[in-house]
Structures are given as structure tokens and as C-alpha cells.
């Protein structure tokens, strides 16, 4: 595996997840303490005017940062900014992407996003990876 510091501008990291399952969201509810039922109970999602249950935005944001997990000996995520722009439904296939935008001696800036199987961005933002 390449070190993160070896990446150049416009290089990217990418991972595609397994289709989103109800169990994924039940587990995240338990682990995060966010038991809002629109993420786990069909009737509650319908009552809220949704076609079905949706993933927690923070579940998707939590997944996205794992692109950087293998690089913690080189540095750490100093800033992580996300705008939630679309909903994630059951069976959606989410692809996580990070693209190098800017590199300095002390940090690397990445454009990050998660897109669904239709190519729609569901979350989008920036990560500043501070280097040791």
C-alpha cells in the first residue's frame, strides 16, 4: 500500500460498500445512541413522509473517514467538514471517495464525498489531514 504522503494532487482513494442493510442501521443506532426511529422502523419513516427508512447522516460520515484509517502513523484528520445533501436508503450501494486537492509540508487537503449507485452525492465535504 502506498503511503498517504506519496499521493499527488488529483490522486484519489475509493471504496465501495456492501448494500446498506437494516442491520447496519440498527447497529449504528445502538453504537451511537441515536435511536431516532426513522432510521430503523418502516412505519415511523412513512409517518415522517419518507418512502422508507434512511441511514443516519452520521453513519455515512463515519464510513467515509475510514479511507484515512490506514494512515494514522503519518498523521491524523485535523478537520472534517461535511454537508448532507441526499438521503441513503436500504439497499443503496455507496461509494466513498477522497481526492487530493492541495498538499503542503504540514497537511494534505482532500475533497471527500459519498455517492450512491445513481451517481448522486449523498454527503460531500473536505478533510484536512495533518502530517507529522
Amino acid at each position: 500500500m502506498k503511503q498517504l504522503v506519496e499521493l499527488h494532487t488529483n490522486d484519489s482513494l475509493e471504496v465501495t460498500l456492501e448494500p446498506v442493510s437494516r442491520m447496519d442501521l440498527i447497529k449504528y443506532s445502538g453504537a451511537s445512541g441515536d435511536f431516532n426511529p426513522i432510521h430503523t422502523v418502516d412505519e415511523e419513516a412513512k409517518k415522517a413522509g419518507l418512502p422508507g427508512i434512511i441511514a443516519h447522516g452520521m453513519w455515512t460520515m463515519g464510513n467515509l473517514s475510514k479511507l484515512f484509517t490506514p494512515y494514522y502513523e503519518e498523521g491524523f484528520i485535523q478537520d472534517y467538514q461535511i454537508r448532507f445533501s441526499g438521503m441513503v436508503f436500504l439497499q443503496d450501494v455507496i461509494t466513498l471517495k477522497a481526492e487530493v486537492e492541495n498538499i503542503s509540508d504540514t497537511f494534505s487537503d482532500f475533497k471527500v464525498k459519498a455517492v450512491n449507485q445513481h451517481g448522486k452525492e449523498v454527503i460531500k465535504g473536505k478533510i484536512r489531514f495533518s502530517k507529522y
Binding site: W59, T69, P70
Partner: peptide, 10 residues
């Protein structure tokens, strides 16, 4: 439990 729930058990 948290890292398991986001598929990040590094």
C-alpha cells in the same frame, strides 16, 4: 462497538 458499526475495525 462504534467502529464495528461503521465497518472500520482497524
Amino acid at each position: 462497538r462504534f467502529v464495528e458499526s461503521i465497518g472500520d475495525s482497524h
